Amino acid sequence: MVVASGLTRYYGARHNGDPPLTAGCSSYLDLYRRLQQSWSAETSSKWQCDNPAAGQCAVTALVVQEMLGGDILKTDVDGAWHFYNCLDGRRVDFTAGQFVSPIGYDDIVSNRDEAFNETSASQYELLRSCVTLLGRERSPALAERRFAERRQEFIGLDRAARFKLIYQTNLWGAKSSVSGVGSEITATQKLRKELSDLLRSLGVRTVLDLPCGDFSWMAETDLDDIRYLGADIVPEIIEANLLKHSKDDREFRRMDIVEDPIPRHDLVLCRDCFVHFSFAQINRAIENIKRSGSKWLLTTTFPGIRQNRDIEDGDWRPLNLRSAPFLFPSPDTTLNEGCTEAGGDYSDKSLALWSIDSLPVAHER
């Protein structure tokens, strides 16, 4: 293999006649800018605000190879492996900017297994999704389209009545779950295993699932030795769950995440909830969760979203809780769900874990 002798720092050099880049990137510079915007503490725990490339070399080399092919190379930098790429026979190092001094490249041929030893599947999937989605106009999700078609029916309804109507009309349009396509068994196959592993790694013994919806995918999740409380604002959902799913260590209760006192649990699971709330109701719900004294919040976020938009309750849009107006800190961990809805336009959909004590109060958001 021939590697160019000159240092290709950051985004590399391309020449006339080179084949076009894929995944919507027109140049190495375009790809580098997307990477810069996508790197975060969720793609590497070593990320720093003033040095975003820090710790991103392995995950970046993996994503770049998947997008553009070529080889993964490595070199020793201060006793640790630094990973980068060889594309079209030339060295391309998108994360060289994390180092103050020039790198003495050894250009040792590496592989994906070695690079994955320095990152995780969730970090890889998240970076890949964010890079791919940047600059791409996302198609409206099914829940968003169907709410727009019937918006007039929600005029004058309070929050409880809105979600009751959504349930009664199966507004979100899933074939096997009234909780929407994101709650179908096929959509949660990856998540179910990772969620069980996460709960056990945290030593969680009690979980509050709010909103629990129809419990369809959670019924297939391994919750052995975990006491589970499912709660929802729609009484009919709770009645159905009590008849079908209740047992000694599993109970269901009607609860409004915004208005009702929330009992203390090791972990509050709040999946696919805030995406349906206005900013004002999200802030009220978060403050209510904080008052519960619970330890962890595991909730839906879309890290690829750069600007959040407000909606009326019951509508839908992707939401990034680290962006304004919420400004959550870096999560303790992130589970990318592998969402395939709308042709992969929401592939950054994730459950992110925060210590509830770390969440900013409303006046700071």
Rank of each mutant, 00 (worst) to 15 (best):
M1G: 15
G6R: 15
S27P: 13
D30P: 07
L31I: 15
T43F: 01
W47H: 10
P52C: 09
A53G: 10
C57R: 00
I72S: 02
G79E: 07
H82Q: 03
R91K: 05
F94H: 08
Q98G: 07
D106S: 09
D107I: 09
Q123L: 12
E149C: 11
Q152W: 13
I155K: 15
S177E: 02
G180R: 09
S183K: 09
T186I: 14
A187E: 07
Q189C: 11
S196D: 04
D197G: 10
R200W: 11
R205C: 08
L208C: 04
L210Q: 06
A219P: 00
T221K: 02
L223V: 03
R227T: 14
Y228F: 15
G230S: 10
I233Y: 10
A240T: 01
K244T: 15
H245V: 11
H245E: 06
M255P: 02
V268P: 01
V275G: 05
F279C: 11
A280N: 15
E287S: 11
K290C: 07
L298G: 05
T301L: 13
I305K: 01
R306H: 13
E312R: 12
G314A: 08
A324I: 09
P331S: 14
A342I: 05
D345A: 07
L353F: 11
I356T: 15
